[in-house]
């Protein structure tokens, strides 16, 4: 028993010596670095959209419609709340809470619910949705435009030590969907409640599910 303890101690001491020998300076975790990385990805995405598709007419010179403002601010709010949670998840700590995105999501859910209720009141939910070609395009581009932000967040998480890979996958996807769709909203000229409430919100759901499925295997350590 004593020999066992002694050999265990020796094994641990040997490991400590090896790890000490291997030590090199590292840049300590700073959430600001993560925020800057995501902000950079978002800025690049908006620049890309402006360069390739162009920004919507009158943006910055005329007062946009209330629906445009509400939808895009909600998307931005969801995206930023989830992205902030993702940044924090790279630095684990017992006592961390990541509840902000839940509240942001609950608030943003009002818009699609209002859109569906409005269409249902008019009695043509299905036909309006199926024939809105611009809507499906916005949904696709909004989702794809979150890829750069998603990549930045995955790289950030892989540098850190996320201890809840599944939750990190959800929040990364939701953040990417929110930010990507808000970015594409700078191009989309359609301002109706149905269009914004459904097709600009769907990327959050789609990217969230994709993130939950695809990201955890990339984060386990």
């Amino acid at each position: 028993m004593t020999m066992n303890n002694s050999s265990r101690e020796q094994g641990r001491n040997r490991l400590i010596d090896e790890l000490t020998e291997d030590l090199t300076p590292v840049r300590a975790f700073n959430p600001r670095d993560g925020v800057a990385l995501v902000a950079g990805a978002l800025a690049l995405t908006v620049s890309g959209i402006a360069a390739i598709a162009g920004l919507r007419a009158g943006l910055g010179t005329t007062m946009p419609s209330p629906y445009f403002l509400i939808a895009n601010l909600l998307l931005l709010g969801v995206g930023l709340a989830a992205a902030t949670a993702v940044v924090a998840m790279a630095g684990p700590r017992v006592g961390n809470r990541h509840d902000a995105p839940k509240w942001a999501l609950a608030m943003a859910a009002v818009l699609p619910l209002a859109a569906l209720a409005s269409l249902a009141g008019q009695g043509h939910v299905e036909s309006d949705m199926m024939h809105d070609a611009a809507g499906w395009r916005c949904m696709a581009y909004g989702t794809v435009d979150g890829l750069l932000a998603a990549t930045a967040m995955v790289l950030w998480l892989r540098r850190g030590a996320p201890v809840s890979p599944e939750r990190a996958g959800w929040w990364t996807g939701i953040a990417a969907g929110g930010l990507g769709s808000a970015a594409y909203g700078m191009h989309c000229p359609v301002d109706t409640l149905a269009h914004l409430g459904i097709f600009h919100m769907l990327p959050v759901l789609i990217a969230g599910i994709a993130g939950r499925i695809a990201i955890p295997p990339l984060l386990r350590w």
Partner: peptide, 10 residues
């Protein structure tokens, strides 16, 4: 793990 993830400490 502490060694590999030491950069994640704030």
């Amino acid at each position: 793990s502490l060694h590999r993830k030491r950069a994640s400490y704030d």
